[in-house]
Design a protein around this nucleic acid. Sequence first.
DNA 1: CGCATAACATTATGCGCATAACTAAGTTTA
DNA 2: TAAACTTAGTTATGCGCATAATGTTATGCG
Lengths: 147, 147
Amino acid sequence: MDFEQADAINQAIRLLSLRHRARASALLAPLGLHPGQEALLLELARTGPMIKAQLSEALGCEPPSVTLMTRKLEASGHIRFRAVPSDKRASVVELTDSGKALATQVKQLWCALAEETIAGLAPDTVASLPDTLNTMTANVDSRRRAK
Amino acid sequence: MDFEQADAINQAIRLLSLRHRARASALLAPLGLHPGQEALLLELARTGPMIKAQLSEALGCEPPSVTLMTRKLEASGHIRFRAVPSDKRASVVELTDSGKALATQVKQLWCALAEETIAGLAPDTVASLPDTLNTMTANVDSRRRAK
DNA sequence: CGCATAACATTATGCGCATAACTAAGTTTA
DNA sequence: TAAACTTAGTTATGCGCATAATGTTATGCG
């Protein structure tokens, strides 16, 4: 592949990352959320309470990040920790009522953001989009690569 | 659009961002570069010397980010600053010889990364990929939105 | 059983990027 | 020409995410 084409792809991914995140940030700000936190809430809303190690796996970020994210969401009252009797190392994370309410608001924002994002794309492009993106993600996933 | 579909798209973009950046970081580390810096070097290699405000525009990031990025790249000897006689506010940024050499190395890495990224995708998907991504980027670009 | 190893979590630190607030220099206009 | 505005850049600060190092608990095996 020549450099022009490679750069077009890499650059496009980089810029989409920046802009999509910035837009998410702008949409989430009124809810008092920073980007990244919404993923945690949505994951808990989807799958239910889980320990931080599972959260880390589900969100695709590292354990220290989960520690900090959950700490902030706990401070704002949206999640709560619960000890696991059978394993003193672990700590279950679950949504509070406030967190559940917030998650439903986030879902609406999420739909709006996705619609905004794909505006002007051909329907079949949109249909195959998740697959395409996930393939690329798997291709560069250094997590599974290493393990 | 229903939430399932919206989440699939937003989540896929978020994960691709994380992984593509992480992979870039791993590839750039041997060159002593952190992700983001390569874009600056490539931009200077492509367009030639320019002032920081232009760099900020070209890279799609904010002026304070450019201040810090250029400071670090200057410290590692890859770029250099030059005053503009006609405008005492401005400061031109240009590649040093070391920076030029590094840029050509980055170009090779960039091609490898792009090839790795698109592995397994249909050729026509790849062909339309930059356009698709750029459309999405423009759709969520809060910069132009505001102005 | 006891010990090595693995798993859960945290603290410390550093980078990229953002916004807000500011200085200094150039430009427009009344 | 003095005042108002714009533009280039910096400093200060904060968040998300990463890696490295550490403490603690669970577990598998000789």
